[in-house]
């Protein structure tokens, strides 16, 4: 491969564009941090420089509830706080449960659609595909009612119920990959007398690690970022997830002005898990997205 390494003007411009893109991607996050360490009372005057005049950690402290209400109010907040570690735990439970269970069950379903023969298969699959086209809000309203009728508002089961067992997308996505596995592999195992379950667990799943991981990561990111559903069904203190907590923290701003420094401190905290993910799983993450790009 002979790549052109001569520093032409074109290459310089191209690199400049690429670096600009990285700066645009990251600068807002820097600005968030810069605002988060600005004293709330000074924000109206001190909001332009690259660093605040009097950096402080008070906003993080008051968002985490480490200072009293009056002190928090003096620093520009309403005294509202984020029970960060509780909400983090809730987010982890919500995301973890859905990602693991849904991916697994949908793998089973996708396999059945790809390989097993049974009456009504195509009709059923057609129904799933049709469901793919339906915007989620259409089922969200009745699902909210259902969860309410079951008395599951503000519970974990209410939070995870609609997407724990399946999404049509996951089934559809995995079926595509199972279709691509050569039948001979399974035939050999079948002849050896292995049952469908054994084949699925021992042969098929290990062969589809890639797509499974891609799907799981995507599901995890979607679930982690989900806002409307958790806000509707589980806004209660005990089951509140991070995204809903941020939305509620915004609502609990002081009556006359949003508490920008506190909000940015809360936002910065909510980004920490994401950044950890990038630091530790950067390659996995990038690979798995590119994977869907290659198979798309």
């Amino acid at each position: 491969m002979s790549r052109n390494t001569r520093p032409s003007i074109g290459r310089v411009v191209a690199w400049a564009c690429l670096i600009a893109a990285v700066v645009i991607s990251l600068f807002p996050l820097y600005w968030m941090l810069r605002t988060a360490i600005t004293p709330g009372r000074e924000l109206a005057a001190d909001n332009a420089g690259l660093l605040p005049d009097n950096p402080t950690l008070i906003n993080f402290e008051r968002v985490l509830g480490l200072v009293g209400r009056e002190e928090a109010r003096a620093a520009g907040g309403s005294g509202a706080e984020l029970d960060f570690f509780l909400y983090l735990r809730n987010s982890v439970v919500y995301t973890g449960l859905i990602t693991v269970v849904q991916t697994l069950l949908c793998a089973m379903g996708g396999y059945a659609f790809a390989r097993l023969r049974f009456r009504g298969r195509d009709a059923l699959f057609g129904l799933f595909v049709a469901a793919l086209m339906v915007p989620p809000i259409f089922t969200l309203l009745p699902n909210f009612v259902l969860v309410k009728e079951l008395g599951w508002l503000n519970t974990y089961q209410g939070l995870v119920a609609p997407s724990l067992l399946m999404t049509p997308f996951a089934v559809f996505f995995l079926r595509q990959f199972f279709l691509g596995i050569p039948r001979e592999v399974e035939q050999a195992a079948l002849i050896d007398g292995a049952g469908r379950w054994t084949i699925f667990w021992r042969v098929v799943l290990p062969m589809t690690k890639g797509p499974l991981l891609t799907l799981a990561l995507t599901t995890a990111v979607w679930t982690w970022n989900d806002y409307l559903w958790p806000l509707l069904v589980a806004p209660g203190e005990e089951t509140r997830v991070l995204t809903a907590a941020l939305g509620i923290f915004l609502r609990q701003s002081p009556n006359t002005s949003p508490d920008w420094t506190g909000l940015m401190a809360g936002s910065a905290l909510s980004v920490v898990p994401v950044l950890l993910l990038v630091v530790f799983f950067g390659r996995r993450l990038v690979d798995s997205i590119q994977f869907s790009g290659m198979k798309g």
Binding site: L105, M108, V134, L141, V145, S163
Partner: peptide
């Protein structure tokens, strides 16, 4: 066998997609 593989997915589909669609 298919029933075993599909039961959870089908349950999820019936309760949280089909039923709400009809209700909606």
């Amino acid at each position: 066998t298919a029933l075993g593989f599909l039961a959870p997915v089908f349950l999820g589909f019936a309760v949280f997609y089909l039923y709400p669609a009809v209700r909606g």
